[in-house]
Structures are given as C-alpha cells and as structure tokens.
Amino acid sequence: MEGVAGAAQTGKAALYRRWASKADLVISALGATLPPPPTFPISAPCVRSCSSSWPGSAP
C-alpha cells in the first residue's frame, strides 16, 4: 500500500478509506483495467458431449 500511495501522491489512510485491504485494491484495479471475460453460448448437446468425456462420467 505504501508504494501505491507514493505513486498516487497520497497517504495510506486515503487508500484504506476507499479499499479495506490490499486484496480489495487489487481486485478493483484489475476490474478497471482488464477486459471482461468472453461469454460463450453453451448448448445442451455441447454440454452432453463435453461432460461424457470427463473422467469418471457415465458412458
């Protein structure tokens, strides 16, 4: 948090007012910079064929 506060030219207290923990700050930063995960439509035949190849699944 000290490094982030220094880069932002603010104090750690200001960061902790916004984010309760380092993990919260990282999650927020990643959420703001990474693109959203792609969504793929999953059809019932796809689920059946994929799940039948899993180890331990019934034939």
Rank of each mutant, 00 (worst) to 15 (best):
R18K: 12
I27F: 07
A5P: 05
R17I: 06
A8V: 05
A8W: 04
L34P: 04
L25F: 09
L34W: 07
C50D: 07
I27L: 13
P45E: 07
W54C: 12
G56M: 08
W19C: 00
V47R: 09
P45F: 01
D24K: 03
L30F: 04
A13W: 00
P35M: 10
A5F: 02
A14N: 08
L15A: 01
F40W: 11
R18Q: 14
F40P: 01
V26Q: 07
S52G: 07
A20G: 10
G11T: 14
A58M: 15
G3M: 03
I42G: 03
I27H: 10
S49W: 02
I27V: 14
Q9S: 06
G11A: 04
P41Y: 12
P37L: 15
A20F: 03
S52C: 12
P38C: 06
Q9A: 04
G6T: 15
D24M: 02
T10E: 06
G11E: 06
L34C: 09
P38F: 12
A13L: 04
S53R: 15
V47Q: 10
R18Y: 00
I27G: 02
G31H: 07
I42C: 11
K22I: 12
Q9M: 06
G3V: 09
R48W: 03
G11H: 01
A5N: 01
T39W: 12
R17K: 13
R17E: 13
A7C: 01
F40D: 01
G6V: 15
A5W: 05
A29P: 04
G56E: 04
F40K: 13
K12Q: 13
T10W: 01
L30E: 13
G31W: 03
A20Y: 00
G6R: 13
A58H: 12
V4A: 14
P55V: 04
S57W: 09
P36Q: 14
S43E: 12
P45W: 00
A44M: 03
V4M: 03
G31I: 07
A5Y: 05
L30V: 11
W19Q: 02
